[in-house]
Nucleic acid binder design. Sequence first.
DNA 1: AATGAATGAGAATTCATTCAT
DNA 2: TATGAATGAATTCTCATTCAT
Lengths: 190, 190, 190, 190
Amino acid sequence: MSQVQGDKWNLILDAAYELFGANGFYETKMSEIAERAGIAKGTLYLYFSSKEQLFTAMTKRDFEQFLEQLTNGLQQSESLKERLSEVASHHLRYFYNRRDYTKLFFMMPNNDPEMLQEIQSFMVQYIRILADMLEIDGFKEPKLLAKSFIGILDMMKMDILFDPSFQEEDVCQRVVFATDLFMNGCMHQK
Amino acid sequence: MSQVQGDKWNLILDAAYELFGANGFYETKMSEIAERAGIAKGTLYLYFSSKEQLFTAMTKRDFEQFLEQLTNGLQQSESLKERLSEVASHHLRYFYNRRDYTKLFFMMPNNDPEMLQEIQSFMVQYIRILADMLEIDGFKEPKLLAKSFIGILDMMKMDILFDPSFQEEDVCQRVVFATDLFMNGCMHQK
Amino acid sequence: MSQVQGDKWNLILDAAYELFGANGFYETKMSEIAERAGIAKGTLYLYFSSKEQLFTAMTKRDFEQFLEQLTNGLQQSESLKERLSEVASHHLRYFYNRRDYTKLFFMMPNNDPEMLQEIQSFMVQYIRILADMLEIDGFKEPKLLAKSFIGILDMMKMDILFDPSFQEEDVCQRVVFATDLFMNGCMHQK
Amino acid sequence: MSQVQGDKWNLILDAAYELFGANGFYETKMSEIAERAGIAKGTLYLYFSSKEQLFTAMTKRDFEQFLEQLTNGLQQSESLKERLSEVASHHLRYFYNRRDYTKLFFMMPNNDPEMLQEIQSFMVQYIRILADMLEIDGFKEPKLLAKSFIGILDMMKMDILFDPSFQEEDVCQRVVFATDLFMNGCMHQK
DNA sequence: AATGAATGAGAATTCATTCAT
DNA sequence: TATGAATGAATTCTCATTCAT
């Protein structure tokens, strides 16, 4: 995580990430976040107006990082298959690296519209990246295809996060499996 | 199925379903559930030992219903394609019928091991049903394929639940799309 | 104060009266009131929805008592002078008996519209009682006269509440003084 | 009067007056006062050691102004009646001009001894001004009479501040009414 | 079985005040 | 003088759960 010295904003987000990720939104106290960040409780509120907003900001930072790294990774890929592999690899590795933060994906504040907004905005961008590359290659219904691929990858988080025997090598196998399945499915739908 | 249980048991579960579904676990009060069920707060605790357990029981009933109806639907299908269509149709319709209960799929209690247990047990059964039919037809890696198909279907809940313009006809198109994509992908992976 | 056995509502109001009166609204904690009433904090909220509402209810009860006792006292008086004396006596004794609750008259919640409502409603009733008796005797501008008399009496609370040497006998002298002054003023304004 | 004090001192007091007057002591934040005065929060504490002390200083300035203007106004009056009219007019106009600052008269900090001191000191001086003029004309109990007159005038603040239909002309009528009532009352008590 | 009054632990948030710059 | 980022004490209110009836 980014810990630029003096960057209290990122410091707080890092602390929040650890605790929300390990314990979930409702089970994490603002006082714990403050303590972990090494600042006073009141200071949190100089940077984030509420617990909900802090969670949303933390998620947003993570989403942006996800998309940025994905975009970077894709620049080295040429063929569609390479690009799809890159997406799969990035997606699955994302979860693999967050095995200790499972709560992030199952516990978020319920009624926060800003949070929902953030999720939807992320999905739109993620889907567009995939859909664009599929469209260039002439596939019909690129958006639906994109969602399908993401769906395949996302379902795999269950094993990655909750199967303790899941190893880093397994990630690669899944990448190949998902990419092949999806590519074959696409090719014959053209 | 739950006729074994008394009337009041189901009455409570119905009330819980409505409220948890509309507002989420943390935003629903036990007193509200009692009121909606037309009984006293204390009575809830004669049937369920805690709020978490009530939520888990409610989810379990829903899961069982899902699997039971799926099994029934599959008995009329012959070919693999028909069976996959049936699965897709059932899965997507499930979400379509629960458009007003979106919180059910995004907010659940965090630290309840019984609940996690229930989800995993459901997934195992759901996957097995699909994997079995794929295995019979000779596909390799039937479990991974099953998870992939479920993943494709599950991603579609985003549109079904949150796109207000999503109509019942759209469900059918998605069924066809998902089934075709998956079938084609499978066929060429054999 | 009224402490009908089992009447928790009055029990809470009594405790609130003591503490709000001695320390003022903002300096009194709900937990203190609960402790003094011998109940749990949460129980307060079964009877009063907020601290403000508790204060208002307490004030209302006191106002009602004031007006009821005043009305009773006036039934034994015949002449106007007797009646004015009764009002003066009642008003000044009210403050004298509440020498230990001075904060009641100088500290109340600021922005509570219900509280303002209550005060104005009390004043309207108090003024009417006085104005009615003045009108019967043919005085012009009975409402203005009523307010003036109340003003004279109310100003005396400063000495009664804050002059430690103020004795019960002094109350009587003030009653005579205020009544005479006001009567004479009225008589020659007819 | 407060020319002795620096510009900023009065600037702060002006801001405090607006905000305390409109919202009351507890509902006004030091940060708001600073913002309104166009200075930094910390700067407030270079001039006033605490919120309470700021409120007291603000009140003191207002009291001093009240007494100074009253004294000035009385120098042009000759007869007792004229002088009483002047007092009444000044008192009622004071409230009329502060219709937007009602909180000043109903919300002040509770436990600040300096503030209580200030109020009592003001009352002593105000009463003395009135009592002196009454004593010169040979009235008995001049202090009690002074308090009574002030009481009559002060009760009228209720209408002036809270009756939205109260007009400037009504002030004059009240002045005449109060003065007459009081004069007549006094004359016949001699 | 059913009730619902009573409990009390628990947490977010505010804001007067300080002090390093 | 002036600043404003940082502090942290302090308190209301909620709500799952209990238990006497």
